[in-house]
Amino acid sequence: MNKTLWRNALDYINPYIPGKSIEDVKKEYQLDKVVRLASNENPQGPSRDVVKAIQKSLNQLNLYPDSTAKNLREKLAIFYNISREEIMTTNGADNAITLLISSYVNEGDEVVYSTPTFPAYRSTTILMGGIPVEVPVTEDWCFDLNAMYERITDKTKLVIICNPNNPTGTIVSKENLVDFLDKVPNHVQVIVDEAYAEYIDDKDYLTGIQLFKENYPLITVRTFSKFYGLAGLRVGYVVAKRDILEPVLRIREPFATNRIAIDAAIAALDDREYGKTHLKETREGKNYLSKELGSLGFEVFPSHTNFLFVHLKMDSLKLFKKLLPYGLIIRPCAPWGLSEYARITIGIKKENELFIKTLQKEIPNHIKI
Rank of each mutant, 00 (worst) to 15 (best):
I356K: 00
N365Y: 03
P167Q: 09
F79W: 10
P335T: 08
D204T: 08
R73N: 09
I126C: 08
L31Q: 12
N8L: 11
K75F: 04
A264I: 07
N91T: 03
Y216F: 15
Y29G: 13
H366R: 09
W141M: 08
R7S: 05
T277M: 15
S339F: 05
L177E: 01
N62K: 10
I160S: 03
V239F: 02
A264Y: 02
N106G: 02
G327W: 07
I131N: 13
R272A: 14
G129S: 04
V190G: 03
I348T: 10
S173M: 04
R272I: 15
I191S: 04
E28W: 06
K286Y: 08
D24H: 11
N62Q: 10
I152K: 04
H278G: 00
N306P: 13
Q60E: 12
G232N: 14
K155Q: 14
N42F: 02
K26T: 13
H187S: 07
R272Q: 15
L230C: 08
T98A: 12
F180S: 03
D202G: 10
P119N: 12
F301A: 08
K33R: 10
L218W: 11
N166W: 14
D11F: 01
N59I: 00
T138E: 05
L72M: 06
I348N: 13
E107L: 01
Q210D: 14
K70N: 12
W336V: 02
G294T: 13
T124V: 15
K203W: 01
D109A: 06
V51I: 15
L58W: 10
T156A: 07
D179K: 11
I356T: 05
Q360L: 02
E198D: 15
F118D: 14
I87G: 08
R151H: 05
L100W: 01
G229V: 02
Q360M: 11
P164T: 09
H311I: 12
N287Y: 13
N365V: 11
R151T: 12
